[in-house]
Design a protein around this nucleic acid. Structure first.
Length: 376
DNA sequence: TCCATCTTAGCAAACGTCCA
DNA sequence: TGGACGTTTGCTAAGATGGA
């Protein structure tokens, strides 16, 4: 059954022992975040551990916005711990400023306003990322919290290959982009530096830039979280909400017709089961055994299934489970397609297994009849 | 009701091809 | 050339089925 092309043949697959992950260092809790003082910019940063390239003593080397920076570790631990310490530093710095700058207070009223806006912005940033950080603490917990009515509950702790791929991709993206999502929490909270800004325009520009950065971060976070959720194999028909748009005004039809059969009324215990049953309605047994999922590829020996009927299948799934059009691609790619692909494989395999079983049975019965000639 | 066997689905890993 | 992606293969778990 080596059927990807007609020109190559696979070697016998080597069998390796299954590797079961067992955390040997679970009791060791490494710091998740660091508060770092950047001498170059006279500012403090809270960064996630993954943003730090290496640590030597109290000095940490990190990369932000594609720039390599070196700073002194002030505090390490959880995000909350770093935030608390940062607030203390901030208050101390403010009180010092108030003592030394009383004479400038009248002239700097506008600057203060701008600074408070900036601080509010930064504090919002902290708050939002703090929440993200909580979610980030144990992604597996989030995955596992999703209801799983399937088998293999005992194995729910390991990530699927897809999830591992995504994690690696996100990590790579963070590194490429100077880790500018939840792990990039660059906080310019040094009033002395702000004083050096020459005029109000600079301050306003600074605020605008930070707001832009913040919006970018939020967009990326949203995208990453959706993808992470998409990769969960524990998703069932009961928690497809991430692929539903509550703001959508779409009116879902109750009928997807194929030769007089309403595909939507087919009953399945979940979306995978439903899709398999629809496949059995839409395509003949021969088609299921000899074709692959659309759109197919030139280098693959099997032809893709009829795309029009496949569109009906997708419509039926989308309508039955009320999935948004603009989110359906992700759902299909990460959840439905793997199931259907497996299903087609099994359709081929079932036949060959049955043939092999029947052959074995017939051989056994033949041997049995040959070994009993004297009884006749 | 119990037990053996079959069926079905899920997953990991190997492998081939494409593409940036 | 390595990563992404799809396919194949081997294996496991759990439900379904049928006979004792």
């Amino acid at each position: 059954m080596m059927a990807t092309t007609t020109t190559f043949s696979r070697d016998k697959r080597s069998q390796n022992p299954r590797k079961v992950f067992s955390p040997s260092t679970a009791s060791v809790s490494l710091p998740t975040h660091y508060l770092i003082y950047m001498e170059d910019t006279v500012s403090f940063l809270i960064v996630a551990r993954t943003s730090i390239k290496y640590i030597q003593g109290q000095m940490a080397s990190l990369i932000i916005n594609k720039k390599k920076l070196v700073g002194e570790i002030v505090v390490s631990g959880t995000f909350v711990r770093c935030q608390t310490e940062l607030n203390k530093i901030q208050k101390t710095s403010q009180s010092m400023d108030e003592d030394s700058n009383e004479s400038e207070s009248e002239n700097c009223q506008l600057d203060e306003d701008a600074r408070s806006v900036e601080k509010d912005q930064e504090n919002n940033k902290i708050q939002d990322f703090g929440e993200e950080s909580e979610a980030e603490k144990s992604p597996d917990e989030n995955f596992n919290n999703r209801s799983s009515n399937k088998k293999r509950k005992s194995q729910s702790s390991y990530l699927s290959q897809s999830k591992k791929r995504l994690k690696r991709r996100i990590l790579d993206e963070n590194i490429d982009n100077g880790s500018d999502n939840e792990e990039e929490i660059a906080l310019c909270l040094a009033p002395k530096k702000c004083k050096n800004l020459s005029n109000k325009d600079d301050r306003l520009k600074s605020i605008e830039n930070k707001m832009d950065d913040f919006n970018q971060c939020m967009k990326k976070m949203s995208h990453s979280m959706r993808q992470m959720a998409s990769y969960s194999n524990k998703i069932t028909s009961h928690n497809l909400d991430i692929y539903r748009d509550p703001n959508s005004q779409e009116n879902f039809t109750d009928k997807v017709d194929h030769n007089g059969t309403n595909l939507v009324i087919i009953v399945g215990r979940d979306f995978g089961d439903f899709a398999r049953k629809v496949m059995r309605v839409l395509y003949s047994e021969e088609e299921r055994k000899t074709h692959i999922l659309p759109p197919g590829r030139p280098h693959l020996s099997r032809k893709p299934l009829d795309s029009n009927r496949f569109a009906l299948l997708n419509d039926a799934v989308r309508v039955k489970y009320r999935l948004s059009k603009h989110l359906y691609d992700d759902f299909f790619k990460y959840h439905l397609r793997p199931k259907l692909s497996d299903f087609l494989v099994e359709e081929r395999r079932r036949e060959s297994n049955t043939i092999v079983r029947n052959q074995a049975k017939s051989v056994v019965s033949q041997i049995a009849t040959q070994s009993q000639p004297g009884e006749e």
